[in-house]
Design a protein around this nucleic acid. Structure first.
Length: 259
DNA sequence: ATGTCGGCATTGTGCCGA
């Protein structure tokens, strides 16, 4: 089973890019972030015509997540538990029914800039809720995958110019600590389980020729519970997508599971 | 630090978020 996470930066602006990608790469499951669309305005038809089941959790203008799946989806839930007053659309989860059932979670973690400030407080609060929910998911002992735009640079090696991000919400010590607390519940960070070293990025700013200079950061991650990690046979970043026509500022990250 | 982009409110362009 091939699963990809992809921050598309606006589904309406990116529709041709995303459809070309689906036709070429044929993921079984795709988790999309920053759809920037309400559910009623999401262009469902071209995805359903290609045989994808589609579940969205959108809002007007910002944020928004979606799950595409060629396999059946069951028990879909929307919104990260822990704060009924949180109106930002950043979490969706569903069970994908393949050779074995996998709980798949798509997330768009808050950016948090500027830090310090209320946006950073919201980020850390959201991560505390994520930790609590991840603990519950881990306790299920089912195969669980949590993937998306984490807006976290886990280590200095995950940035071309770490010094430029030292005071940014994506790399501050408190951000990294919150990410590690989640990983340390027992999750495997899929990419780093297979690839070491510098130079591996999933985001390049649109500004200042960041792609041309390979001035990137790695902020899109896949976390696997032990039961899911045991199924992983590959994980890769599709960096070449950043050089295509009308790219998102993020590229897809893929995992292959023997399921 | 800022060389860009998407969406919104809104009809020409400035603001916000990233």
């Amino acid at each position: 089973m091939q699963i990809a996470t992809f921050n598309v930066n606006g589904i309406k602006a990116r529709i041709e890019t995303v459809l070309d990608w689906l036709d070429r790469e044929q993921p079984d499951v795709a988790l999309l972030q920053e759809i920037k669309s309400v559910d009623e305005a999401f262009p469902r038809a071209p995805f359903e015509d290609r045989g994808y089941n589609l579940e969205t959790h959108g809002q007007k203008g910002f944020n928004g997540v979606a799950i595409l799946s060629k396999l059946p989806l069951e028990d879909v839930t929307r919104g990260l538990p822990g704060d009924p007053d949180d109106e930002q659309a950043r979490w969706i989860e569903a069970t994908v029914i393949g050779a074995q059932a996998i709980r798949i979670c798509g997330l768009y973690l808050p950016n948090g800039n500027p830090a310090p400030g209320p946006k950073y407080d919201y980020k850390l609060g959201w991560m505390a809720r994520l930790e609590a929910h991840a603990r519950d998911l881990m306790a299920s002992e089912d195969p669980v995958l949590m993937a998306g735009d984490y807006n976290i640079i886990p280590q200095d090696e995950d940035a071309a110019r770490p010094e430029a991000w030292a005071k940014d919400a994506l790399a501050l010590p408190a951000s990294r600590e919150a990410f590690r607390r989640i990983v340390h519940l027992g999750f495997t960070e899929a990419f780093r389980a297979r690839t070491r070293g510098t130079g591996h990025y999933s985001f390049w700013d649109y500004q200042a020729g960041a792609w041309d200079r390979n001035d990137g950061i790695r902020i899109d991650h896949v976390l696997l519970s032990p039961q899911a990690a045991d199924l992983m046979t590959d994980c890769r970043i599709e960096a070449e997508m950043r050089g295509r026509e009308k790219p998102s500022d993020h590229v897809p990250v893929w995992v292959t599971l023997d399921a």
